[in-house]
Nucleic acid binder design. Sequence first.
DNA 1: CATTTTTTGATATACGCCAATCATTTTCTA
DNA 2: TAGAAAATGATTGGCGTATATCAAAAAATG
Lengths: 353, 353
Amino acid sequence: MSGPTLSDVADAAGVSYATADRVINKRGNVAQKSIDKVRDAVTRLGYVRNVAAANLSRRRVYRLAFLIPTGSNAFFNRVRDHIVQSANHLSADSISVEIVDVSAFSVEALQNSIGDLADLDFDGVAIVGLQSRLLEHPLAELRARGVAIIGLVSDLPTNFRSAYIGIDNRVAGRTAARMTGIAHAGRVGAIQTFAGSMDARDHAERLQGFRDVITADFPALTVLDPILTKDDPAVLYEAACGALQAGSSVTAVYNVGAGNVGLIKAISKTSGTRPFCVVHELVAHSKQALIDNHINLVIDQRPDVEVNRAFALLRALIDDRAMPPMPDLMPTIYVRDNLPADTLNTVMKAQTT
Amino acid sequence: MSGPTLSDVADAAGVSYATADRVINKRGNVAQKSIDKVRDAVTRLGYVRNVAAANLSRRRVYRLAFLIPTGSNAFFNRVRDHIVQSANHLSADSISVEIVDVSAFSVEALQNSIGDLADLDFDGVAIVGLQSRLLEHPLAELRARGVAIIGLVSDLPTNFRSAYIGIDNRVAGRTAARMTGIAHAGRVGAIQTFAGSMDARDHAERLQGFRDVITADFPALTVLDPILTKDDPAVLYEAACGALQAGSSVTAVYNVGAGNVGLIKAISKTSGTRPFCVVHELVAHSKQALIDNHINLVIDQRPDVEVNRAFALLRALIDDRAMPPMPDLMPTIYVRDNLPADTLNTVMKAQTT
DNA sequence: CATTTTTTGATATACGCCAATCATTTTCTA
DNA sequence: TAGAAAATGATTGGCGTATATCAAAAAATG
């Protein structure tokens, strides 16, 4: 069952174990002729290195780092949560994980953090990125040191990372639009949108996808221009109160950003029938709002799935192997009936807001 | 970084390596006093056995089996697909997987298949189960041989398996109801339901959950009694044509079972506005129907996630370890906008229908 | 051809654990 | 208390790989 060993390969190639080893581990000082013989034997026998034995032997520990924005953002607390939980079990696979806090939305901070990583001898890093050319230099340096780099949730400059793990935010916006359209059942309506900032790529993309679907498939609906909130619950609260005051023609609300605590507060104070309401990211308060019927839908990007994929992908990159099959990453729709029992609030307590 | 070894434990416990080994591997002939000392040292040092080294040493190969119903059911083809795909990568972890075909919905067939497993020396099996006391005997025998047993998708008699991996079908039904209710936007309506058989527990549970939510939260809607189709597309086609004929008061359709090809065909022939339509399981044809706007929603149970969990759980059970953190298993809502790009039809070609 | 350089072979140790053996000590029983 | 039984210790070889060393062989160089 367990395949051929390197000794088998050496025998088949007609060379010594030492030479086979020199080829496999690229130690140099091998004649091209020998290299070919070994390579040939490898493919002939279908040799695959026993990673477990290899790691055991070299006492390898995969050192991974996750660069996550700090702050009161409940979503990233969820991400942290999953990283920490996974880390416990991953230590059994000789994988060590460190979470590096980065000041949110600050290019300089991120730039510095990435620069600091270079000296720390990590094998792989997952970074919640930003789109800025300033990041290119430190990323290039990291990569030059042989560190595997992936973008997480929010992408990095494309040419300076090996992969991106996160949802397609246009798809997320389209999904929100589809549901909002369905909820109007052909009736006329106006949808008030909210966003943190149009500079945030994910916010802009969600809005774009949302608009596309409404325009194409629900002509009876109007998408009102987004009110910008900087993801601040207080700002969102004020804005929402304004938009939802008595006599408003708003039939639906869609917030592509964070700060939903403010929105929920505003909605819960609305008298009469409230508008159809869609927000992003399932966290303690949005979950509760679903249960309380203050909002209708949560579009979630499943940080648990993302983190799982990140670990698998980093390992695959580091060992130069193929990625194992993993669940796809799709925007997930939650209503009050399909909520996970989850402990979404373990880290929540530590948050500042 | 890599934790204490068994030698460390032995030293800390003040016993020899041999004795520590006797305790850890339950070889017997150890005094209670020594057992306690070793156990104590283990917790004190936080010793965890290096599974990689252990498996390397004993040349262990985990032998797993999946018992999957045969037939033209596209959903189970999807399940097979994921098992096969995963198996390729799992062989690197010295895990071998076999899929055992079982005649669908036949208690005797399943009973026999389980019985046959006993002699085959598997370490763990995942079984798409049925609810029948006839299965208890062969299951008990399997378990007596130390085989880890879990129910997959459809549960086994509760006391004869270690765990069940599958969605809560009441939740799935509730979710379908919520979306159907939302789509009516307060209007009066009648929902025609379809089911394969009310003996199938998953069908009954979905229907129950559906009814519960409609009754509680959408009093303007009526749930019509299910038409039973045996999951046969032809039967479903006829029934759907009848229910949807011109002048029908049906505003929505919900099929808790399979055979959706027939339903979709019937709907695509309907003139005028078609009813709101919800079905289960994302497979090639239901995906296409979403894209073509013949149906509105697919509630999916994510066989990829289920299979992943099954592997992780079986390993955990076999090694008597804790389950690593994995994505939760929730009924997932698909609309035409959040479809996976997936190759859902690799196995599809091999199917008979 | 002699000499240097490159390439190869043979071999040893280690990683953490499993499985087994055999001698020795401790504990139990008659 | 002698003898039997049970428990313990000490030790060995092996799993498949990594890494290092040293001697020997082959190839390249002048």
